[in-house]
Every structure is written in C-alpha cells, then in structure tokens.
Design a binder for these strands. Structure first.
Lengths: 117, 117
DNA sequence: CTTGCAGTTGACGTTGGCGTCAGGTCCTAG
DNA sequence: CTAGGACCTGACGCCAACGTCAACTGCAAG
C-alpha cells in the first residue's frame, strides 16, 4: 500500500509517516521510481508507534523496543528501559489524577457567577 | 521572599518563575531596586501552576482559572473550560493506561535474551 | 573597599513532532 | 497528449517551557 492509503488507514498525515521513517521507526519498500510501499502490518505498527509516542516515549526508545514485537525476544538492557518507562508512565498518571481532582475541587467549591462577555 | 528562596522552596529554577511572571501567572511585588518579592502564598500558587502545566494545560488556560482560587467564584465560560480539560485529562489517562498495558504485555511475552555489548 | 553571590533585563538556543511550502516526478483517465 | 492528483526530496516554520549566556546592578560580610 502507498503512503496516502496508509495515512488514511491510521489517521495520520503522510508527513508524519515520512518523519517516522526518518527516525527509523518504519522501513517501507520502494517502487523502482522511489515511491514508498508499506505492508499491511504497517497499520498495526503505526498504531503502536502512536500509542507509545502519546505516552511520552522518545522515538529513540521506541526504536529499541519495536524489534521485540518481531522477534519476541528482548535484551536485558531494553527490558530495564521498559520497566523504567512503566514507572514514568505510572507517575504521570498519578500526576494527571491529582490535576483532575484539583479541577474537580475547583468546580465543586466555586460559585458560578454570571459574566457579561 | 526573594526569587531564589521561592525557587528553592518549590523546586523550580528562577528562570521558570520569571517565565511564569512573563506569562501572567505570577505578579510579585518589587523592592525599590527592582528585585522581586513574593508572598508566602506564592509557594502554593506555584505548586498549582506546576501541577496544571504537567497535566497539559496551556498557561493561557491557567491564567483564566487562577483567579477562581482567590475569589471562590467562576464564570460559566471558565467552568466549561475546566470541564473540557477534565475530559481531555481523562482521555489522556486512558491513553497512558493502554500504553502501560502494552508495555506490560511486551515484558511478559518477550523472552529475555543475553546481549553481548 | 572589595569580594562575590544574588538579582535584573534581553536575547538567542533547544527539543520533538510534525506543518507547510517549493520545485520537480509519476501515473492514470479522458 | 494533457490535466491533475499523488508522490518525491529538501528545507524552513512553529510552539511551549524553559536553558543559557551576556552584561550589568544590588547587597551583606569581612
């Protein structure tokens, strides 16, 4: 499939897909004229990339863990990285929960006041 | 208290405090010679600012809701903003939880492999 | 007085994840 | 043959939240 199709399939821009390739996250084949050709599996792969990027992992980190999907094996150094990221994500979740709670406090304790513009 | 003291008290850099002021989040008094002077309450205020920034709120948004703390009242437009932010935070938390789960999957299903180098 | 740390403003640098041209090529339909 | 999408490679733009000089002033201690 070509870049436009993949982009539509996963809901990202072609520019983003080229950027992922530039970062080493994707390695599409090329037609003789240089057009990118992606396998079906790229859809799943991009979804995972987006998920991890949204969770705050650096693309460098993602590069290291993507091979684990294909091989089903992982180096101990990468395993440590994954655990570190989990810890970071956990603390980020807690931070978000505190913020949400604080906003809820504000909402429940504030008196709504009419505001002309 | 001066900027260095406040910075140490809340664990941020003086530069960050000046930036918050530039953004309208803080309004310290000044000594006759121009040095910033913060009230004790600034500690609490900066903690809240950090919490909301960490939760992904824009400083412009924070500007609008900080007065609510002081007045205990809130305009209906700001109330809507707060609810919108809550929704955003909720979806962000869910996204993080999915990522964490995915990492846990990887950890539990991958075979740890020895790695020279 | 001077040493030296703390403070001031101003301005440019950084990082990530793309958006957005610009200028050219490829390919399919009519 | 030609029109017009879709694709290509640069390369510069953008935004937020500061970091990092630079060049200067303020101030307390010895």
């Amino acid at each position: 499939m070509r870049i436009g199709e993949l982009a539509a399939a996963v809901g990202v821009s072609p520019r983003a897909l080229r950027y992922y390739e530039e970062q080493g996250l994707l390695r599409p084949d090329r037609t003789p004229t240089g057009h990118r050709v992606y396998p079906e599996s790229a859809i799943e792969r991009v979804h995972l990339i987006r998920l991890l990027l949204a969770a705050g992992l650096a693309s460098r980190t993602i590069i290291d863990i993507l091979p684990c999907l294909a091989t089903g094996t992982i180096a101990s150094a990468q395993l440590e990285m994954l655990k570190t990221e989990q810890v970071r994500i956990d603390s980020q979740i807690r931070s978000l929960e505190r913020a949400r709670e604080r906003l809820a406090d504000l909402i429940s304790t504030s008196v709504v006041r009419d505001q002309a513009s």
